[in-house]
Design a binder for these strands. Structure first.
Length: 600
RNA sequence: GGCCCUGUAGUUCAAUGGAUAGAAUAGAAGUUUCCUAAACUUUAGAUCUAGGUUCGAUUCCUAGCAGGGCUACCA
């Protein structure tokens, strides 16, 4: 439909002003609802080629369209805005083409042509020393959704994560467990593995702080105390032993990481995210270290007197950056070099490698990509940092020492509980088995958190308001889910009544309501929105789209009756329209990783 | 100090350089003999400041103000 009009405009420009403009350069926008029309074309910039005022130019193009473009029934021009009305029959035909006379799941409106590209999306990648929190939820939902969106947009996608299983942080938990743990295990304590390890990370921090305080009291200055606290030195020693593969340290490391993984896996499963391939820092850091040594030989990097290895990025306007410590151990950057290499080896011809990581690491990735370039890897340009904003609480930033961290498992449980309470309050699920009810609460609770975290532009920092997030009214996941459930009820009834959606006599649909036009228009936007979401790596685009559509449908639902409609054809049409709307909502929500219930 | 990001209704979020800046919440007033009221309708309410570019600026540029991040031999 849009394409036909753009074509018409291009022809008009050619015929009237001998001006050539490619159809893809013609931008149409939906007409604002206070004006008559479906699409609006802006004619201000055309004054140069038409040598007439924008209004007159608009009129001439409008005139041409009405004459030559079948779909266009009327036009009006306000200043430089040419409002184009599409005839009702064309809109019904547009719907017929989209609905395709088939089951709506196969509708061509959802199908995007393959791009032939392969994209790898990294997300999650937590440290293995504490459980997941609210920030990880945004990360996981965002990364997972972007992967779904890119796949729907025609790409081959692999979801990966790097597991930061080595480094000083895990040594801290290990050491504290050794010192204070008394052999406690997830089984013996009944604590989920990731939470148990997190507990000892906190224990470490407590002991460390106490030691620092003691040293300061003994007359040492704070900075020195923070570097020389015995427990910290012990942790550093442990990391060194680990890199030497000391059997005892290694065994403990394997045990405790195992606890964390099983804890994480339980959380991932509940969240509905998964991965095609996992990378372990403990595997990749050695590759990184080798490449750094190579770079050193080639003179890309340099060594300081104390033996530490650095890269000089001052020519690029950045600083010098450490790549290997003086004791030879690796830093974050070292392993990231190795990980990138492994990925481009694993996925030959990779078009893009997307890192879903918070914006506090923008500098880090800038440096990483520059280093890869300096090492001579052409594919460095295919690396992209999908940088998202932090999640703040009404009280400010989340801080583990102040105990203001919102735990992921707790939050999800809270949302599911709220869904249960709200549903029972409304008393709408008579006839549900216990199992079905539990499944519904899970869908609603998770739908609420996911939607809340993804409706905001990922690049922006966002506020997590616990009270508002458990709201199920307004611009929320459950509102959209509710709309879907409502449509499902309509479709169940239609099938009961034997209303067929096949072989609808679309020519018999003479007059349609504004809300129906809105829905047809919205459905027709799916691909464009999907492309936009893919280009911007923004699930928020799909969230907004699904919400707008749900609103449109609810308006349609209250304005018009389906089963009280005397005109059989019109009834069929409305059922079909409902079916395709439901499918569009389901798809859009699916791209966010949100499931929709048949009943609620 | 240097670099980066963000300033929109009371609050949380929208708006490829386009019309009278949209939603949601919170506030006020309504809608159930009618397919699910987790809904719908009406109402009131906002572009940080000062310049500039443009036919036209929330959007682009400059300066200022405010908030956040980065600038670790942490990850």
């Amino acid at each position: 439909m849009e394409q036909a009009i753009k074509q018409g405009i291009a022809e008009a420009l050619e015929t009237l002003y001998s001006h050539q403009l490619a159809t893809e350069d013609i931008a149409l926008q939906p007409t604002r609802k206070e004006f008559e029309g479906t699409y609006t074309y802006i004619t201000f910039p055309l004054s140069r080629v038409s040598r007439k005022g924008p209004e007159e130019t608009g009129n001439e193009i409008g005139e041409y369209l009405v004459k030559h473009c079948k779909a266009v029934s009327a036009y009006n021009t306000v200043k430089g805005f040419l409002n184009i009305s599409v005839s009702e029959s064309s809109q019904v035909q547009q719907f017929a083409a989209m609905f395709n006379g088939q089951s709506p799941t196969d509708s061509p409106v959802f199908h995007m042509a393959p791009t032939g590209k392969t994209v790898v999306v990294e997300y999650s990648s937590p440290n293995t020393n504490k459980p997941l929190h609210l920030g990880h939820l945004r990360n996981n939902f965002l990364g997972n959704s972007v992967a779904r969106i890119l796949e729907a947009a025609g790409n081959k996608v692999a979801k990966v994560q790097i597991i930061n299983d080595r480094g000083i942080h895990i040594c801290k938990s290990m050491l504290a467990w050794q010192k204070f743990g008394n052999g406690e295990t997830p089984e013996s304590s009944g604590i989920k593995g990731d939470h148990l390890v997190g507990k000892y990370y906190v224990e470490f921090d407590k002991a460390y702080k106490a030691e620092v305080a003691e040293l300061v009291a003994g007359g040492m200055d704070k900075e020195q105390a923070e570097k020389e606290a015995p427990i910290l030195l012990e942790a550093q020693e442990m990391l060194r032993k680990w890199e030497e593969k000391d059997p005892e340290v290694y065994a403990l490391w394997e045990t405790m990481n195992g606890w964390v993984y099983s804890g994480f896996n339980a959380t991932y499963e509940r969240m509905g995210v998964d991965f095609d391939k996992l990378y372990y820092e403990s595997d990749t850091y050695l590759i990184g270290r080798d490449r750094v040594m190579e770079g050193l030989e080639k003179g890309v990097f340099f060594k300081k007197e104390d033996g530490s290895v650095w890269v000089d990025l001052t020519d690029e306007g950045l600083d010098e950056k450490l790549l290997l410590r003086k004791d030879g151990t690796s830093v974050y950057m070292t392993q990231d070099i190795g990980t990138a290499l492994m990925r481009f080896d694993d996925f030959p011809g990779l078009s893009q490698l997307i890192y879903t990581v918070g914006n506090e690491q923008e500098y880090h990735f800038k440096v990483l990509f520059l280093i890869l370039k300096k090492l001579g890897y052409e594919w460095a340009d295919a690396c992209y940092h999908l940088s998202y904003g932090m999640v703040d609480l009404p009280t400010g930033k989340m801080k583990s020492r102040e105990g203001t961290v919102v735990d992921a498992d707790d939050l999800i449980q809270e949302m599911v509980d709220t869904a249960k309470a709200r549903t029972e309050e409304l008393g709408k699920i008579d006839g549900f088995t216990e199992e079905q009810a539990a499944e519904l609460y899970e869908k609603l609770g998770l739908g609420a958190v996911k939607y809340y975290l993804m409706k905001v532009d990922p690049r922006k920092r966002m506020l997590f308001n616990p009270e508002e997030s458990i709201e199920f009214q307004g611009n929320t996941g459950p509102f959209i889910q509710y709309t879907y459930a409502r449509i499902s009820a309509i479709l169940r009834k239609a099938s009961q009544l034997g209303v067929s959606m096949q072989n609808i006599d679309y020519d018999g649909v003479k007059e349609i309501h504004q809300t129906e036009k809105d829905l047809i228009f919205a459905i027709g936007q799916f691909k464009e929105k999907l492309q936009q979401a893919a280009d911007a790596y923004s699930p928020a685009v799909m969230a907004q789209y699904a919400y707008d559509m749900a609103k449109d449908y609810n308006r349609f639902y209250t304005e018009l009756s389906i089963f009280n409609e005397d005109d059989e054809t019109l009834m069929q049409f409305r059922v079909a329209l409902s079916a395709l709307t439901a499918e569009t909502i389901k798809r859009s929500m699916g791209l966010l990783g949100i499931e929709v219930p048949e009943r609620m």
